[in-house]
Nucleic acid binder design. Structure first.
Lengths: 195, 195, 195, 195
DNA sequence: TATGAATGAGCCTTCATTCAT
DNA sequence: TATGAATGAAGGCTCATTCAT
């Protein structure tokens, strides 16, 4: 990796958690300057403007989270284990796997009516998550773990939506009580469809 | 209503959808100035600072939404109808009942790590929604509509989280396809527990 | 006294110490509003603008101080006592007879290059003080208390300048040590010219 | 000198006389912008805020004045000459050696109850002036110029306080008449203690 | 590539003042 | 006389961005 690319990557890594925590609008280039200990000019050598940096930070946050998630899931031996791992992975909203919480929720709600580029990135992230879950379910159906009449795509949506909603509650309430309800409910639904 | 209170209310009404759409950080006092056609100084006659106005706007958004919701629900004759009405009320994320989408999601994710006052307001709003649903379920159990073994509080959480998650997807994708999955799933769950 | 004049006087009394403490530029109409618990509009009923109020406050400060000074001096039986009383009256710069310290010094240095009206008021106040001292000295010469060759006007200036300089030191240092030097020096000079 | 430091110094030089003339509160950042022909943002590259710039301006005013004073005094051959030079240096309040007049008087009275940092700077400046005079007197005593029973510290205070008081009168009256009384009185006091 | 000085638009807020009631 | 809502200019300051070095 060339020196330039290295610095660029360094900036992204420092910027990503700040953007995910404070939001794009509330994060200033000075915030990132301070976090990286780099000069103001240096930021603009590597990123055309704040928008470009913010996009890179969004991508980075999603990638980091995705990698961690895949690493966790990859250890699973069965499809059910995969689903349970997914659920457990996101089960602690108070101390989430990514600083600042779920980037899909954070950037999604901010980008919503103001930033079509980021909005589309989040849209893809959401689709990716559902596809991941859907594939696990389909795999489980294929290998005889799950009820063959189960609608994989629909239940993927059920898992994803409940986990996001649970995440919101966790972060607002400061505890995981309701998230526990969510995970328990989801797991028993999975059990019901296990053979 | 005194003149001052009238203007104050007028400002809140104009400001609320802007805050809910752009977010607190990205909304400037000038934005509200423009929307109200009032002078900049006038805003500060009625609100100590932007923070106070933002809080009032958050309250207003939640109140407006709550009132609309209650008005819809109050027409229901049975507990099941109440739950279905709640679900239907929030079933269109693309054209939501409140300009800018769900304020719990919008302000919640923004306030998260930056604004404890707003965060607590959202926390209360979330609790209120779940309680509303829980009460409908309990009422249905009491009057023999629903399975008496149903856990009211837990299913209230299931409804709330899935609806919020579905809302997120709707707004990011620009369509209500996955929201349809959510509402259909929830309604069939309710049917399963109806006697 | 008519109601209007009463309120006007009330405002002046509340405003005077604020102006003398913070200075004219740093005192806002809101400061006086708060101190008087009167409405903003009310201030402008009694005073055309801030400048007029500030002038009234300057006058008031000088008058209050002058009255206190005269009251103290009037108790003196001899000319020497009068001079000593003057010196003692101003001998405590840390806890001065007027809140905020000497108005001649305060308003004088502020008005200097910016406010000719106030500047002239202070100029008259300074002249008045020197005349007061000069008259006491002349009286003492006339009644045989003081050396008839003493230059009354010049020593009045000596007293006034040293007291003002001493006042400045007191207020900056937070103690009256150097002021003590000033008063002791002045008193022994007076003794030297006493018969 | 680096470019940044150069600009910083340039701003201070332009700002110092403005602050000394109008006072800190009455001087706006825009005033300095105009005087320097620099952009508003540029001021904040070199000074954290107005307070920091004001402090730098206070320091600068005191330093410039001190340097001029020392340059004048350094030409003196005898202790008496030093004292006379000090007196002459400050003898023209109408056209003072520093634009805006004596910074100890100007900033001192303004800082008094509102700005502890500036207040302490002035306090040190006052002490410095008295020490300077005291040292000249002590030198004169040591080399046999002055009466060995003379109290150096006390007479330093007499000179300083009378000169400051005289300065105030000069600036308010617009003439140096009373200052002339002050300087003549001080010089004859010095003569009286000369051997 | 990296720096940090420079910019000017825009931020939130306070100001003195006016005016309908 | 008294109120307080309304105003718009100006306040201090931060912002994203540019550019010479």
């Amino acid at each position: 990796m060339a020196k330039g690319e290295e610095t660029r990557q360094f900036i992204i890594e420092k910027a990503a958690p700040i953007f995910n925590t404070k939001g794009i609008a509330a994060t200033s280039m000075s915030d990132i300057m301070e976090a990286t200990k780099l000069s103001k000019g240096s930021m603009y050598v590597h990123f055309e403007n704040k928008e470009v940096l913010a996009c890179a930070a969004v991508d980075h946050n999603m990638k980091i989270l995705g990698d961690k998630l895949l690493a966790a899931i990859s250890k699973s031996k069965t499809a059910k284990e995969e689903l349970f791992t997914y659920i457990d992975f996101f089960s602690n909203g108070v101390n989430p796997p990514l600083t600042g919480g779920c980037p899909l929720l954070n950037f999604g709600t901010e980008a919503d009516d103001t930033n079509p580029v980021v909005k589309e990135k989040i849209n893809q992230g959401i689709k990716y998550n559902q596809k991941l879950l859907e594939n696990s379910i389909k795999k489980g159906i294929a290998n005889g773990e799950f009820n063959p009449n189960w609608n994989a795509a629909d239940f993927a949506t059920v898992i994803f939506t409940m986990m996001e909603g649970g995440h919101l509650i966790s972060r607002m309430s400061g505890n995981n009580d309701k998230m526990k309800v969510v995970t328990t409910t989801l797991k028993s639904m999975i059990e019901e469809n296990s053979l």
